[in-house]
Write a protein that binds this DNA or RNA. Structure first.
Length: 274
DNA sequence: CTCTATGTTTAATT
DNA sequence: GAATTAAACATAGA
């Protein structure tokens, strides 16, 4: 479930359930997800504390507690937070739970589900490196064209590879990068240092479009079963390009499957002249 | 059985 | 050093 729009939905859900509430129970036995903390650390850090704030940067979530402690959550590939009844039985993919009581005394139970267990739950007293080292978040900070131009100019890697670098832009994953570049009409294999400022402007708008579209799908339908993603090119190799009808091509960039349209996405290859 | 997967890290190689 | 590539992680679904 994890890319910026999914994590944003998770953030809103946690915010609604947790802010102002007091933690009555916290539990996880999954050493892999909690690493490097020991399982006991979760309840010791959370129980009795009141939640002050939930925030998101890129694909990371941060829950701030009233004593300055904090819990970071990364959803990995298949992580997801859901709210369940306090008595709801543990299901197979449940890796952690946090129970809270609101000021009106209402009990809520949040469950962290993660079948593949690539996600993380980290308890710390200060911001962790993974959080501090994130680049600007497209929703929180906006996409600064100058910043992206500078980042792209530093390397000759494929542009898609660079915009997925979390220290350049936080939250862009394989889907958003693929879709955003299609909107921008830029070939994902383009050499990053060959792009003009105008190209970067298009990419910024393309990514914004992809993010808004995904967010809308998740906001407008109440339950998750109704989410049906409509991608233009992601996962659609061989299908006709929705814009020009040519067959969607598939290549591997940075180890990730990448789809694009050879006829309407232009490839920048040589260094532009000043 | 095989192949693929929304992410990240680490080791090996060029 | 920079850059690229492959593998690894663990599980589900087609």
């Amino acid at each position: 479930m994890p890319e910026l729009p999914d994590v944003e939905i998770a953030k809103r859900r946690l915010e609604k359930a947790l802010v102002g509430a007091t933690v009555t129970g916290a539990h996880s036995e999954d050493k892999r997800i909690l690493h490097p903390s020991a399982p006991s650390v979760l309840s010791r850090a959370l129980v009795g504390r009141t939640v002050q704030e939930v925030s998101r940067r890129g694909k990371w979530l941060r829950v701030l507690l009233d004593d300055g402690g904090r819990m970071f959550s990364h959803l990995g590939m298949t992580g997801w937070w859901v709210e369940r009844g306090i008595e709801h039985p543990k299901e197979r993919s449940e890796r952690a739970r946090i129970d809270v009581s609101s000021t009106e005394g209402r009990s809520r139970s949040l469950r962290y589900l993660d079948s593949r267990r690539f996600g993380r739950l980290i308890v710390a007293q200060a911001d962790i490196d993974e959080w501090r080292e994130l680049g600007p978040d497209p929703l929180v900070d906006g996409i600064g064209v100058s910043h992206v131009v500078a980042a792209l100019a530093k390397t000759r890697r494929a542009v898609k590879d660079v915009i997925m670098d979390q220290s350049v832009l936080a939250g862009i994953g394989n889907i958003l990068a693929t879709e955003g570049l299609w909107h921008a009409r830029i070939d994902p294999r383009s050499r990053s240092d060959a792009l003009s400022r105008a190209d970067v402007g298009k990419i910024a708008r393309g990514l914004g479009m992809a993010i808004r579209r995904e967010l809308a799908v998740r906001t407008e339908s109440r339950n998750e079963d109704e989410w049906h993603d409509v991608f233009s090119v992601y996962g659609r190799a061989g299908a006709p390009c929705p814009r020009c009808g040519s067959a969607i091509a598939k290549v591997i960039i940075g180890g990730r499957t990448t789809t694009f349209c050879r006829s309407c996405q232009v490839r920048r290859r040589s260094l532009k002249r000043a």
